[in-house]
Computed example of a mutant assay.
Amino acid sequence: MKKVGLLTALLAVGMMSACSSAKKQQTIEEPNYVRTQETEKLLTNLKKSSSKGIMFGHHDDTVYGIGWDGDEGRSDVKSVCGDYPAVISFDLGEIELKGDDSLDKVPFDKIRKEIINQYQRGGMVSLSWHVRNPKTGGDSWDVTDTTVVKSILPGGENHEKFSGWLGKVADFLNSLKVADGVKVPILFRPWHEHTGSWFWWGEKLCTPDEYKTLWRMTVDSLRTHGVDNALYAYSPGSEPKDTAQYLKRYPGDDIIDLIGFDTYQNDRDSYIAGLDKSLAIVDSIGKSHDKVIAITETGYEGIPDAKWWTGTLLPAIEKYPVAYVLVWRNARERVTHFYAPYPGQTSAADFVEFYNNPKTLFAADANLYQ
């Protein structure tokens, strides 16, 4: 009995030693789970930024605008107020197809260059991904099949195909380097507006567990491919009515760095009420989960209200600790589809007042990597 006890003890010690060695080995073999110093600095400064003010953002700001396309150094925002946005977003849609251009017909080489330019200004870049439907071949808005998400999860018929698509995203993120080899940090915001059902990953197109698994598969794949320069944003629409509904498909604190929401104005009163409701939700969750909060997409198409910036947007958001508010693009192919002013636009003068307000931050104010 003593020999049996001794043998059991020795085996137990051996197993503990093996587990300890395995843990050490795992730490050595998983360096990609450690984010770059610059990426950690970005997160630290995002958490502090709301104490300085609210950063202004604009989608595709430096790649096209009203009446121009691809002009070097140009920006409708800069043309109006003299500075670039503190946050610029771009979209990676169709990078999965091995094409040279995004779904908005912007060369990926140009997007890469503008991401680096924004980093060198001290500002931030957010990247969304309007990825094509891997099952039907349609676009992100193709919701004709309700099993697309299930088909790309592990064991699904399109899993291998989609894994290759994630590899292309990883290759792009890993290519974002300045001259000395430092990787540019970005905020990656995939699977957005999932509380609606207009994208193939939307609420009626997959279960909460499938959606959460999609998120984890995405982050795990990027990490496996060496992506260590990304923060991740969870960004539903304005549908959630309370914190429980907002968190229903939340994939977890360990993979999410920033929480926000997308919402656009139609009726002013309902827009203001909706902003307040959604901001109260993310403010509460941000404090309890230690997450940065932001308005990840918003705007008023065509901005017909001459005082919209200081009369509607700023008063609605300034009472919350919002890191940034981002408006959507100024489409060069649809002249009525714009969300930031350009010289001579009805709200341009008010936007200058918005810019001069000490509560708003632009690229010159950001300094996100110091």
Results as ranks from 00 to 15, higher is better:
residue 1 M to H: 15
residue 13 V to D: 04
residue 17 S to V: 11
residue 20 S to V: 06
residue 21 S to C: 14
residue 24 K to H: 15
residue 25 Q to C: 12
residue 30 E to N: 15
residue 30 E to L: 13
residue 34 V to W: 08
residue 36 T to I: 08
residue 36 T to W: 00
residue 38 E to K: 10
residue 42 L to T: 05
residue 43 L to Y: 15
residue 45 N to T: 09
residue 51 S to H: 14
residue 57 G to S: 10
residue 63 V to Q: 02
residue 70 G to L: 02
residue 72 E to W: 12
residue 74 R to I: 11
residue 76 D to P: 06
residue 77 V to S: 05
residue 79 S to E: 08
residue 80 V to N: 00
residue 82 G to M: 07
residue 83 D to H: 07
residue 84 Y to A: 04
residue 95 I to A: 01
residue 95 I to D: 00
residue 97 L to W: 12
residue 97 L to H: 14
residue 102 S to M: 08
residue 104 D to H: 12
residue 105 K to Y: 05
residue 106 V to I: 15
residue 110 K to T: 11
residue 113 K to S: 13
residue 115 I to V: 14
residue 117 N to K: 15
residue 118 Q to Y: 05
residue 119 Y to D: 08
residue 119 Y to F: 11
residue 121 R to F: 04
residue 125 V to M: 04
residue 127 L to Q: 07
residue 127 L to P: 02
residue 131 V to S: 02
residue 132 R to W: 10
residue 132 R to D: 13
residue 148 V to M: 11
residue 151 S to D: 15
residue 152 I to S: 04
residue 162 F to I: 13
residue 163 S to P: 09
residue 164 G to T: 14
residue 174 N to I: 04
residue 177 K to M: 05
residue 178 V to E: 04
residue 178 V to P: 01
residue 187 L to T: 01
residue 190 P to Q: 03
residue 195 T to Y: 03
residue 209 D to F: 06
residue 214 L to A: 09
residue 215 W to Q: 07
residue 215 W to N: 04
residue 216 R to G: 07
residue 219 V to A: 02
residue 225 H to G: 09
residue 228 D to F: 02
residue 228 D to S: 10
residue 229 N to S: 06
residue 235 S to H: 01
residue 240 P to L: 00
residue 240 P to N: 06
residue 243 T to Q: 12
residue 243 T to M: 06
residue 244 A to V: 06
residue 247 L to M: 12
residue 254 D to W: 10
residue 254 D to K: 11
residue 256 I to K: 07
residue 261 F to D: 03
residue 261 F to T: 01
residue 267 D to S: 10
residue 271 Y to N: 07
residue 271 Y to R: 11
residue 273 A to Y: 09
residue 279 L to I: 05
residue 283 D to N: 15
residue 286 G to V: 02
residue 287 K to S: 11
residue 288 S to G: 09
residue 294 A to R: 05
residue 306 A to L: 13
residue 312 T to W: 02
residue 312 T to I: 15
residue 315 P to C: 09
residue 317 I to R: 08
residue 317 I to L: 09
residue 320 Y to S: 07
residue 320 Y to H: 15
residue 320 Y to E: 10
residue 325 V to L: 12
residue 328 W to R: 10
residue 334 R to M: 09
residue 334 R to H: 10
residue 334 R to C: 06
residue 338 F to N: 05
residue 343 P to K: 07
residue 343 P to D: 02
residue 348 A to E: 07
residue 351 F to H: 00
residue 351 F to S: 06
residue 353 E to S: 11
residue 355 Y to M: 03
residue 356 N to I: 07
residue 359 K to Y: 05
residue 362 F to V: 00
residue 363 A to H: 02
residue 367 N to F: 06
residue 368 L to T: 07
